[in-house]
């Protein structure tokens, strides 16, 4: 390691594609899991990824958020104050993170639980009734997968197949029975995105 450049990632002067996402909602909405699946899928697609959760006392307050970076180059900062994509699964998250979206970025709103519309005019907004659709599917807890599907549909960040592959790796075998339901939820989200594109 004393050879200076030996262990450093390659340099690039082209502006690389780097996506910084903040996913936020209530504890229990599967926010952290949604972020992990995204990062895992990115890794399977040979991208550089990082996942950083909120932790400690902040967690105890009932809110959960994580920052996911998916990039063509080594992830510089796993923390983002100006994310390119924000997913708001509830009102407090919308209030807190809508102002942080980079101009020209993307804001996904779970309209089932958010009582207001987006205020920003300089970002793309995708409204997804994620919790409602999840309830239609008979399992409110897959709202995160509906939202993830919409995110993939709107951005093509990673392939849905990679997400499902990640799910199979992350879930213990005894819970693999849940994969088809998650797949349906993902698909419904993708359809919403397709309708709005």
């Amino acid at each position: 390691m004393s050879n200076p450049a030996a262990c450093e990632p390659g340099r690039s002067d082209n502006v690389p594609a780097t996506h910084e996402l903040v996913l936020a909602g209530f504890g229990g909405q599967g926010i952290l899991a949604m972020g992990q699946l995204l990062a895992y899928a990115g890794m399977l697609e040979e991208k550089h990824v990082s996942w950083l959760p909120s932790y400690g006392a902040e967690m105890r307050g009932g809110t959960a958020n994580c920052t996911v970076v998916i990039s063509d180059e080594p992830v510089a900062s796993p923390v983002s104050s100006r994310p390119s994509i924000v997913v708001a699964m509830n009102d407090p998250s919308l209030d807190r993170f809508e102002p942080t979206v980079r101009p020209g970025g993307l804001l996904l709103i779970n309209t089932s639980l958010c009582g207001r519309q987006a205020r920003r005019q300089d970002v793309r907004v995708l409204e997804v009734p994620a919790t409602g659709i999840a309830d239609e599917l008979g399992e409110g807890r897959v709202a995160n997968m509906v939202m993830l599907g919409a995110l993939l549909g709107a951005t093509g960040l990673v392939g849905a197949q990679s997400v499902l592959e990640s799910l199979a790796k992350v879930l213990p075998p005894r819970r693999h029975g849940l994969i088809p339901l998650n797949q349906r939820a993902l698909l419904r989200g993708q359809e919403i995105a397709a309708r709005h594109s």
Binding site: A39, V49, L52
Partner: peptide, 10 residues
């Protein structure tokens, strides 16, 4: 640091 402890990376 707290980042390196909490971050998930490949």
């Amino acid at each position: 640091d707290a980042i390196l402890g909490q971050i998930m990376e490949p």
